[in-house]
Amino acid sequence: MNNVFRISHLSAGFIAVLVGYTSSVAIIFQAASAVGATPAQLNSWMWALGIGMGASCIGLSLRYRSPVLTAWSTPGAALLATSLSGLDMGQAIGIFLFSSLLITLSGVTGWFQKLMQYMPRHIAAAMLAGILLRFGMDLFIAMQSRWALTGIMFLAYLAGRLWLPRYTVPVALAAGSIAAVALGLVHTDTLSWAIAWPEFTMPRFSWQALLGVGLPLFVVTMTSQNIPGLAVLRANGYQTPASPLISWTGLTGLVLAPFGGYAFNLAAITAAICMSPDADPNADQRYKASVWAGTFYLLTGVFGASVVALFAAFPKELVAAIAGLALLGTIGNSLSAALADEHGREAALVTFMATASGLVLLGIGSAFWGLILGMTVHWALCGMRRRSRPTI
């Protein structure tokens, strides 16, 4: 029973959900507003997203005994916020169904897993480090505006490392929460609770909308979310099969798209929190942190958009600081794995720097381009080494 209710599992799951919601929920609102969503429809979107992420997190983590964390597509939401203008809700739902169908087919056919088998571990680790670097740096950027709050959290983190290493992150979160209340930084005046209800919308399909928005939504979700998400699993030593994970996220989207579940995919940044040694020193037990994250996602789905007010009550600096502290160990381990092999070091550095740069080309984010550039260097150098070997 203690293993089920270990506070480090619960804390990692809560922080993952906290970071996931506070970092991008505003983009979801913008996307819904672009198609004129009513308050009831917005609540339905949040219900569908919470229920979908919660059910898939819990189901996949228990099935594979790996910390599988799913999420909504943040780049996809940004794409929708800028591309749905002029379309109605029925057309938007048609776009969601089309993209989810393509994701499902990608998983069922197995091409995605075959592609990922060619990714060396040092490239995956370098991409993960590049993705997470900004979050580690945000910890120190937050000190500029809220030095007292983040300073207390940093000192609590050090104290936890010395005396309670298993509970370092929960200690920092508790200290930050107490400090935020003491400093008057928690705003509870706008809190309100209400049960959210799903609202079905009949989809409408037009080839212009499917090709102009649906296909880019699929591409962005796969390249900017699922590839990094699977790389996080691989970089942390989890060999969970890719095809079932992709298939189930796509199927979840097919079921929940009519209610506003626009895209589900593997998480990368929030998943790294649940895969951290702070979640559990035993890597085989970290899946329980993802189960707790799924439980919190289910709660956010039940209460829908009302839960957003709870997350908004926390100062953004607290969220940035706890995310950075929770990811320090993962960033360090990823860099170590990326640079350990002397022959793969140059390709890993290219992957890391390109990913961390924030490069965007053709509307596709830096994680994808970091992977492409790093793999290009990796295969080029491998070919050069083979040609330079002396023949016997």
Results as ranks from 00 to 15, higher is better:
residue 73 S to N: 11
residue 299 L to V: 14
residue 165 P to S: 04
residue 385 R to I: 03
residue 285 Q to H: 12
residue 256 L to K: 04
residue 343 H to G: 12
residue 79 L to A: 12
residue 265 N to P: 04
residue 222 M to F: 10
residue 289 A to P: 02
residue 21 Y to V: 06
residue 355 T to K: 03
residue 317 E to V: 05
residue 282 N to T: 04
residue 294 G to E: 11
residue 166 R to W: 08
residue 126 A to R: 05
residue 222 M to D: 08
residue 89 M to T: 14
residue 378 H to P: 09
residue 118 Y to G: 10
residue 365 G to H: 07
residue 220 V to D: 08
residue 52 G to N: 10
residue 73 S to F: 10
residue 365 G to Y: 08
residue 85 S to K: 15
residue 304 G to M: 02
residue 318 L to Q: 06
residue 309 A to L: 11
residue 118 Y to V: 13
residue 158 L to E: 03
residue 228 P to C: 05
residue 1 M to A: 13
residue 5 F to A: 13
residue 203 P to C: 05
residue 43 N to D: 15
residue 29 F to L: 15
residue 382 C to P: 02
residue 49 L to I: 15
residue 53 M to V: 11
residue 236 N to E: 11
residue 341 D to I: 00
residue 360 V to W: 06
residue 46 M to C: 12
residue 321 A to G: 09
residue 298 L to T: 08
residue 21 Y to L: 10
residue 309 A to G: 11
residue 279 A to L: 01
residue 377 V to R: 04
residue 265 N to T: 09
residue 357 S to N: 08
residue 366 S to D: 00
residue 274 C to S: 07
residue 138 D to W: 06
residue 34 A to L: 08
residue 378 H to N: 11
residue 247 S to L: 05
residue 331 I to Q: 02
residue 32 A to S: 10
residue 260 G to F: 08
residue 5 F to L: 15
residue 256 L to H: 02
residue 194 A to I: 08
residue 61 S to T: 07
residue 163 W to T: 10
residue 392 I to G: 05
residue 33 S to V: 01
residue 295 T to S: 15
residue 79 L to G: 12
residue 280 D to T: 06
residue 154 F to R: 06
residue 196 A to K: 09
residue 281 P to C: 03
residue 344 G to Y: 03
residue 244 P to V: 04
residue 357 S to M: 08
residue 292 W to M: 09
residue 243 S to P: 01
residue 329 G to E: 12
residue 214 G to M: 07
residue 41 Q to I: 08
residue 333 N to W: 02
residue 134 R to I: 03
residue 3 N to K: 15
residue 63 R to F: 10
residue 77 A to P: 02
residue 178 I to D: 06
residue 304 G to K: 01
residue 184 G to R: 10
residue 102 L to D: 01
residue 272 A to H: 02
residue 265 N to V: 08
residue 298 L to I: 13
residue 228 P to M: 06
residue 10 L to R: 10
residue 119 M to A: 15
residue 133 L to P: 00
residue 60 L to G: 05
residue 131 I to Q: 00
residue 99 S to W: 03
residue 378 H to S: 03
residue 308 V to S: 00
residue 232 V to C: 12
residue 89 M to W: 11
residue 24 S to F: 06
residue 205 F to L: 04
residue 365 G to P: 02
residue 206 S to I: 04
residue 346 E to L: 09
residue 325 L to F: 04
residue 383 G to I: 06
residue 206 S to P: 01
residue 339 L to E: 01
residue 367 A to P: 05
residue 40 A to H: 08
residue 384 M to W: 14
residue 232 V to N: 06
residue 349 L to R: 02
residue 296 F to E: 03
residue 194 A to P: 05
residue 37 A to P: 03
residue 37 A to H: 13
residue 143 M to G: 11
residue 298 L to Y: 10
residue 113 Q to I: 07
residue 268 A to F: 03
residue 308 V to P: 02
residue 188 T to W: 15
residue 390 P to K: 14
residue 114 K to C: 07
residue 151 G to L: 12
residue 107 G to H: 13
